[in-house]
């Protein structure tokens, strides 16, 4: 456990000092600018726009930091072979991967929660309103989504043979994971049996990122979010991440470092 914590701290410090937080700062500036612009261009429901825009901004900044972090660390760890030094130490490859995942996730939490504070500030001070209780649930959902994507991204890092590959795989997983809800809709349409089999495989293999998309339902009066839903979503996030982590670990065990 102490070794995992050491890798987590190392990764966290590495990412924080990699100027990735500039991305966060730029996201905050863009969000504030957009909110200001929209308050001029739009009329009515400005608080709703602030809130929706803010939640989207939190997710986008988390994703950007994740993608850039993956690119930066791939160059250091894999291309420049810094990973040799870690793996030659009394540290299992599983511990190394888990430590990296937790380090990335901590940075992501910092970015998402920091953006969340900016959003709350904008809503209260610029919009003069209050933050709906569901906002905090949305933040946790975004963090769960980030955890799944971080696990996937780092697993790709252990499998891929280039930095571009890692970034592209993660990027497309985000897209496909979000349109997975529409795969179910497609399955109900008339089409060939084999295409349906293929779609069903895609549906089960890709992460169902729409399950974490509470931000699009913040004002939905039909939304039910109770203990049963929380249980499902938490169990889903951790079971999916654990499968991905195990696959990443097995790949890392098998990977050769020339």
């Amino acid at each position: 456990m102490r070794r995992i914590l050491a890798v987590t701290t190392f990764t966290f410090r590495e990412l924080l000092r990699s100027r990735l937080l500039f991305v966060w700062l730029i996201s905050v500036i863009v969000l504030c600018g957009l909110d200001f612009l929209l308050s001029i261009l739009s009329f009515g429901s400005i608080l709703q726009i602030f809130m929706d825009l803010g939640l989207a901004g939190m997710e986008i900044s988390g994703l950007l930091v994740l993608l850039l972090g993956l690119a930066v660390t791939y160059t250091t760890e894999m291309d420049q072979k810094a990973i040799f030094l870690h793996l030659a130490k009394p540290l299992t490859r599983g511990e190394y991967l888990l430590g990296r995942i937790l380090g990335f996730f901590l940075v992501n939490c910092l970015v998402v929660l920091g953006m969340g504070l900016v959003v709350v500030g904008l809503v209260i001070f610029l919009g003069g309103g209050t933050v709906p209780a569901l906002f905090y649930d949305c933040v946790v959902f975004i963090l769960l989504e980030m955890f799944v994507l971080t696990t996937l991204g780092l697993t790709y890092q252990m499998i891929a043979t280039s930095m571009v590959g890692v970034v592209l795989y993660t990027f497309f997983t985000v897209f496909l994971g979000h349109c997975i809800g529409e795969v179910q809709w497609l399955l109900n349409q008339e089409m060939s049996h084999w295409i349906k089999v293929l779609l069903r495989m895609v549906y089960y293999i890709l992460p169902n990122l729409e399950a974490f998309n509470l931000k699009d339902r913040l004002y939905d009066p039909n939304l039910v979010l109770g203990w049963a839903q929380w249980q499902d979503i938490l169990l889903y996030a951790f079971s999916y991440s654990f499968v991905v982590f195990l696959i990443g670990w097995i790949n890392l065990e098998k990977r050769e470092f020339r």
């Binding site: 070794r3 050491a6 190392f10 410090r13 250091t76 040799f84 030659a88 130490k89």
Partner: peptide
């Protein structure tokens, strides 16, 4: 592994850490 030290050819480290931090990290491993 606990009893092995390894120095690769032209070792590469994460540039974001100080020398002391790196040694502390590897020591904790």
């Amino acid at each position: 592994r606990q009893q092995i030290g390894y120095l690769p050819e032209l070792p590469y480290f994460s540039k974001q850490h100080t020398g002391r931090e790196l040694l502390e990290y590897f020591g904790s491993l």
